[in-house]
Write a protein that binds this DNA or RNA. Sequence first.
DNA 1: CGCAATTAAATTGTACGCAAGTGAATTTTG
DNA 2: CAAAATTCACTTGCGTACAATTTAATTGCG
Lengths: 156, 156
Amino acid sequence: MTKAQTTKTMKIPEEEKRLERQLCFAVYSTAHAFTRAYKPILDKVGLTYPQYLVMLVLWEKAALPVKTIGEQLDLDSGTLSPLLKRLEQSGLIVRTRDPKDERQVIVTLTSEGDAMRSQVDGIMGEIGKAIGCTLEEMVDIREKLHGLRGNLTETR
Amino acid sequence: MTKAQTTKTMKIPEEEKRLERQLCFAVYSTAHAFTRAYKPILDKVGLTYPQYLVMLVLWEKAALPVKTIGEQLDLDSGTLSPLLKRLEQSGLIVRTRDPKDERQVIVTLTSEGDAMRSQVDGIMGEIGKAIGCTLEEMVDIREKLHGLRGNLTETR
DNA sequence: CGCAATTAAATTGTACGCAAGTGAATTTTG
DNA sequence: CAAAATTCACTTGCGTACAATTTAATTGCG
């Protein structure tokens, strides 16, 4: 943002107020486009997109407390509790109270949940085709979004 | 994506499978960060973030059929119908059947809805501060996301 | 030690998103 | 022109997101 625009009451040109000019909408609509692109792929393995993200976390480390999963995905227990309940019903995870700290629930991959890891190459390969840009471009956008997310979050 | 990776059964390095390496997650989590950044700002005018997007569309053109709003936001009537009902209850829009084609519902700004346009400079100014990057960077990310969204969508 | 403050997860209530199905209006087609 | 197909919006059902509240467990402090 330019210095001139930092003034609270600065007039913004009408053209800049159009939906398509909004960075927020670019992010919002791309997120939806991703979810839709994943849908037919994840349907084949019986996961929703947020459930797939949880599985990605668990494939990195097979047993984690709900809180840690939430920190990595930036989701609270209000979202995760019912989602994890559905993953448990699907037989991919189990939830057990931590004996060391009964407040915590440890989420652990079942053998089925672990076995699903073998599908990841196929899933990522298909999505990679849909993304249809170079690896360098992917890294570039990813890092820029990471910085943007940091900016948006830092004043919380 | 490199040529080597286009092979369906290509093995992807473990490191590339981590959540934080996923472009989809960068987009997903940034979208949530935006919604959270907008929350306190939009609370002051009584709008949710998706409702604000609908208002942006209507501030460009004060009367539009539901279908057109849906095309611009890439949302279907299953999402828009209840959302528009809430905007109508808030007194910002009215919905009327098009006499030329009774299937269509025309959404029109009320004077209150139109008057809220005066808040836009303030809202965009505040978000601009939260985004905290240069205009050039904003344009760069926006255009790259636009291309990415196009790629993800074109095979629908 | 004992009680207040904190923490973790679940629950409740509201609002998206989206698939699938309904019903009314319009367009296409034989 | 009439039946079939299509279009548009609405509704229903499911699964997130998230604020706010609740309950149980743990930690901190006097």
